[in-house]
Design a protein around this nucleic acid. Structure first.
Lengths: 125, 125
DNA sequence: TTAATATATGAACAACAATTCATATGTTCA
DNA sequence: TGAACATATGAATTGTTGTTCATATATTAA
C-alpha cells in the first residue's frame, strides 16, 4: 500500500524535492548501473553526437583514409579534421598507421557500426 | 594508377586543402548517406551524450516514473529533470501520461535499449 | 475560492566544445 | 641541408548546452 502524500512529505529526507513513489525509487536505484559506467556511456555517445565526427566515422566505414582526404571529402580544414580525429582516437573509435608523412585512419572497433546502425534504425523508422 | 602528388596539386580544385587520393574521396562521397541523415543521426546521439539523460533513460528501463521521483532518484532539482525530459520527449525517446497533477514518463521506443546496449558493449569490452 | 502541490518554462549564467588561426613537428625529396 | 608538405597542436573565439532561479500553469482538496 502506498503512503499518502502527507505521510511521504513528513518522512521525506530530501530538502526540497518531494517524492511520491519512494518504493519505486528505491527499487530503481538498486538496479541502476553505477555512476561511472553511466558517465562513460554518456561520454561515448557524446563522441557520436557531432555531425563532423559522424561523417568521419561513416566515411571510414567505406575506406581507410588520410587526413587531407577526409578534409577534402567534408570540405573542412585539415586542422578541424585533425582535432576531431584526435577526439575519435582518444575514445578508441579510430586507429591510425603512418606511411611517411601520410597518416591513414581507420575504424578501431566492430561495435561502432552496430551503434551507428541502431541509431540509424531509430531515425529512419 | 594514382596520380603523383604534383599532378594532384595541379588539378586540385580546393583552395587550401590538398587531397592525395582523389579517387577514394569520390568513391566514399558517393556512398555517404545524405547530409540530413547524418545530421539527424548526430542529433540523436547527442541526446544520449549527457549523463543526466542517460540516467533518466536507464531508470525508465526499469519502471515508469513521475518527474519528482526521477528528481529524487538522481538527486537533482525538479526543474533540471523537467527540462531534460522535454529534450527526451522532443526527440521521441520518452512519452508521458498525465494522472491528475502527476505526469508519468516511460520509454517511447524499443530501439533505445538496443542503442544503449551497443554502447555498453563498447565501453565494457 | 483558496491553498497546496506537481510540472513546465523563459531567462540568465556558467561551463563546454567546435572551429579557426598561427605555428610546430616530422618526413621526403632534391 | 633546405624546401615542400602532411599532420598535429595550443590559444583564441564563438556558438551551444545544462542548470538554476523565478514564475507560470494546471490539478486537487479543503
Amino acid at each position: 500500500m502506498l503512503k499518502s502524500h502527507e505521510e511521504l512529505a513528513a518522512t521525506n529526507e530530501c530538502c526540497e524535492i518531494t517524492c511520491i513513489h519512494q518504493n519505486i525509487v528505491e527499487e530503481v536505484r538498486e538496479k541502476l548501473p553505477d555512476e561511472e559506467t553511466l558517465y562513460d556511456l554518456a561520454e561515448l555517445f557524446k563522441v557520436f553526437g557531432d555531425s563532423t565526427r559522424i561523417k568521419i566515422l561513416c566515411a571510414l566505414f567505406e575506406s581507410e583514409m588520410c587526413v587531407c582526404d577526409i578534409a577534402t571529402l567534408l570540405n573542412m580544414t585539415q586542422s578541424a579534421i585533425s582535432h576531431q580525429l584526435r577526439v575519435l582516437k582518444t575514445n578508441k573509435l579510430v586507429k591510425n598507421r603512418k606511411v611517411g608523412k601520410v597518416v591513414y585512419y581507420s575504424l578501431d572497433d566492430a561495435h561502432i557500426k552496430h551503434i551507428f546502425d541502431q541509431g540509424l534504425a531509430h531515425i529512419t523508422e
